[in-house]
Design a protein around this nucleic acid. Structure first.
Lengths: 335, 335
DNA sequence: TTGTATGCGTTATCAG
DNA sequence: CTGATAACGCATACAA
């Protein structure tokens, strides 16, 4: 079934069918109905390729993320897809892995699909040194590039993020105020937000004049989903240093610390306070339940899509939207 | 940059450029190099729409799932996307939600994008009564329909699944053999696999001549990710009936039961044994760690994609691939 | 091995 | 308001 078949059966020209299809108002109601009936009858849908060719767009957005099975990224992808869907856009998903070198290949690939915009989900798409981020310019020279949980200042690049620095500063402050200053800081990424979080933590430690806090900052290099490995990692740390608080850049890391403490007979929160990050469903799976920073993911994704839609329709939109994090207090903290 | 521009600059015809682009061997190496150089130089990529129009395909697969933020579905989507990517296919993701009525709309939408195949992720796409599944036939009349974790016998429909019936039968049997017969069965879906699991559980109860086992089968109607709500739900069950075992159709449900037991001062595994399903990362987040059935998701997704690729290249492929589940024993069981 | 000509199914620009 | 007709960019059968 093509537009020609429909036009023939309806006794009109293809131009008229096209107008009906695209909801043009310059078509007589009677003609419109006649065409619609035929379309319905034969269950006709326009060919997407041909349409894309004419319109230079197929209303699709490319979503890139490192690992769509990561709890945080999965939620982000879900929210984004839902909201795009609701606004008539399809989503092409592309999982790049954490290897940053090959990001560019994926970007080229997805650009060749003529998507209308690209969303980079997760701050690992923005590195600390500038030449890592050149590929962003490739994107933005063609279509809008949207960053979720990261920021990058460049034309046609829009950022939506949580103020991780302040959120982490406040998390650390609340622990320090409660009299805990030997705090183990666990992180697993030097991404944009990873750095912000760590910087926020360090700022608090400095402001409270904590000595030698650097010796309690540890980088976990393994699979972020393997709580068992994380727990073993914390075991080994605990053999070398002592601490009465744990702040982690991710809930899974925090839970690894909780598990480790459990093995070593350390009571939580009496002997050890723990704060995670992301406020994921994991926070309610452990015992006691995990205090965690909520980074307003749903608000972020909503804002991001609205900004993207605005940009695509030619409106002037904010280059950067920042949300505040919020510490959700649960059982792993006494304060 | 179009194929015309390239052909002009290379001093050949567009047909030759097209041949180089598509790796035809009927082109002289020298000519090929000449064209390639121009292509590289101008960073030319063929227009996806025009190409799709000629080929009637854009090497894209539609992935439909209820909720890509669900742990199980997220992992499935991730594995699928990775393997498709590795084989030169893009993935269009579409989250339908659990409302089955609107599935058809999503299917039509994704079909109109002229994908080469559709993967339905999760057994909730197959209902128990036949007329729920009619839309599958719409798909398979056009392109191959692949089911993950479900089965449906129809031409051009291929199923990959775990033998949930047997896996659940064996999980229940192992608990019964350990002398526990008052087993609470928690489930939250009447999907294809949901029914299989429950049937397997019931079969075991019958084989072991357990009385009144039906009174301990409970359906949880809430958000499957809200462990807190699940826990409250189990609290209310515990007020009405008593049980010394819990088997759940999903890890989150099992963890809700663990949390509930904790609140009520019940020791695990001494007073209560718990078995979950999916062997997700949640199993290592709770205390004690959760015994769970592994349904070989990675093997399933691999098999599914290989089958799909085979079908797309015209090979004869198995209509159904079944994997065995395996009980992974951890701290919530004594057997 | 290479080039020419045509088709693919739309959208959009003109006339009428 | 409606109808021809020209793009759109590529693949491919057919010729050379």
């Amino acid at each position: 079934m093509t537009i020609y078949d429909i036009s023939k059966k309806a006794g009109v020209s293809i131009a008229t069918v096209s107008r009906v299809l695209n909801g043009s108002d310059k078509v007589r109601p009677a003609t419109k109905k006649k065409v619609m009936d035929i379309i319905e009858k034969y269950d006709y849908t326009p060919n997407a390729f041909a349409r894309g060719m004419g319109l230079h767009s197929l209303k699709t957005i490319g979503i890139l993320c490192a690992d769509s099975s990561d709890l945080f990224l999965a939620k982000a992808v879900y929210y984004l897809e839902q909201e795009l869907q609701a606004n008539g856009y399809e989503s092409i998903l592309c999982c790049t892995g954490y290897n940053l070198d090959i990001k560019k290949n994926y970007v080229d690939l997805i650009l060749s699909k003529k998507v209308d915009g690209i969303i980079l989900v997760g701050s690992n798409f923005i590195g600390t040194n500038e030449d890592e981020n050149l590929y962003i310019k490739d994107i933005s020279s063609q279509i809008p590039a949207m960053l979720l949980n990261a920021a990058y200042d460049y034309p046609n690049v829009y950022s939506t993020l949580c103020d991780d620095y302040t959120a982490m500063y406040e998390a650390a402050s609340s622990m320090l105020k409660a009299g805990i200053s030997d705090i183990l800081y666990l992180y697993n990424s030097d991404s944009y937000s990873g750095v912000k979080k760590r910087t926020g933590f360090i700022a608090a430690m400095k402001d409270y004049h904590v000595q030698d806090y650097e010796k309690l900052i540890f980088y976990y290099d393994g699979d972020p989903q393997r709580v068992k490995d994380i727990s073993t990692f914390v075991d080994s740390i605990a053999q070398k240093v002592s601490f009465h608080g744990v702040i982690a850049s991710d809930d899974a890391l925090a839970i690894g610390a909780i598990k480790s403490a459990g093995k070593r007979g350390i009571r939580i929160p009496e002997d050890l306070s723990v704060i995670g990050y992301n406020n994921s469903m994991l926070t309610c799976c452990c015992t006691p339940e995990l205090t965690s920073v909520d980074n307003r993911l749903e608000s972020q994704t909503h804002q991001l899509v609205q900004t993207l839609l605005g940009v695509l329709s030619g409106e002037e939109m904010p280059k950067q939207s920042v949300f505040s994090g919020k510490l959700i207090k649960r059982g792993t903290t006494i304060f």
